[in-house]
């Protein structure tokens, strides 16, 4: 396997280029896009595996193993979920989450974020509410819960009356938050 051709980047691509190519590809091959067609879904899963291998190889090569081991392979199951969400591989994050028995506040929070980015808003709302109720003091959970509750209202107020300039976005309201900052992307 040539990791460069799998990701469709040149050999002198920057780390940012690699990440961008990776994010686009994991979106293209997300299983949701192949629901209803088992053969295509299996092929997509296989492809995702290759993409992940290629990405791992290239990032490892560029970071000489140091940051890589911290953010990806090491740590608890929950840390691996976070790393998967952060790099945009929602399918992997969801598989890891479903294998965890202990449904802590953090588990609900991550499940909610994954569902939000997958476009499953009702499930996202339920899990983010659960995380917030289990641990209302956590600013990350609170912020996620607020954004979920305020987005619809912001849309309803927008463009009514004099306010005709586009000045609300989900992204702007959550830019401070590490995982949330990229929630505007669809898988």
């Amino acid at each position: 396997m040539n990791p460069y051709s799998v990701l469709g980047v040149s050999e002198n691509a920057s780390e940012e280029d690699i990440k961008r190519a990776y994010r686009t590809l994991v979106k293209k091959f997300h299983p949701d896009r192949y629901a209803g067609d088992p053969n295509a879904a299996a092929a997509a899963t296989e492809k995702l595996k290759q993409i992940n291998q290629a990405y791992d190889m290239l990032i490892k090569m560029r970071q000489t193993g140091q940051d890589y081991s911290q953010t990806y392979t090491a740590g608890s199951d929950i840390a691996r979920v976070r790393a998967a969400v952060a790099r945009g591989d929602l399918a992997a994050a969801e598989m890891l989450l479903d294998a965890i028995r202990d449904q802590s506040a953090e588990w609900h929070y991550l499940k909610g974020i994954v569902l939000l980015r997958r476009g499953w808003y009702e499930g996202a709302r339920q899990h983010l509410e659960a995380a917030y109720q289990m641990n209302p003091g956590n600013p990350e959970y609170r912020q996620a819960w607020e954004v979920v509750n305020q987005t619809g209202g912001a849309y309803r107020n927008f463009f009514s009356g004099q306010n005709r300039a586009l000045n609300y976005t989900l992204c702007a309201s959550c830019a401070a938050c590490s995982l949330f900052s990229c929630c505007c992307r669809y898988f």
Binding site: Y121, V148, G152
Partner: peptide, 18 residues
């Protein structure tokens, strides 16, 4: 449930449209 999901979806649609 319908209200939350309808407006949330529209908010995201409007964002993408923008």
């Amino acid at each position: 449930e319908a209200e939350f999901n309808l407006y949330f979806s529209l908010a995201r649609a409007a964002e993408a449209y923008g």
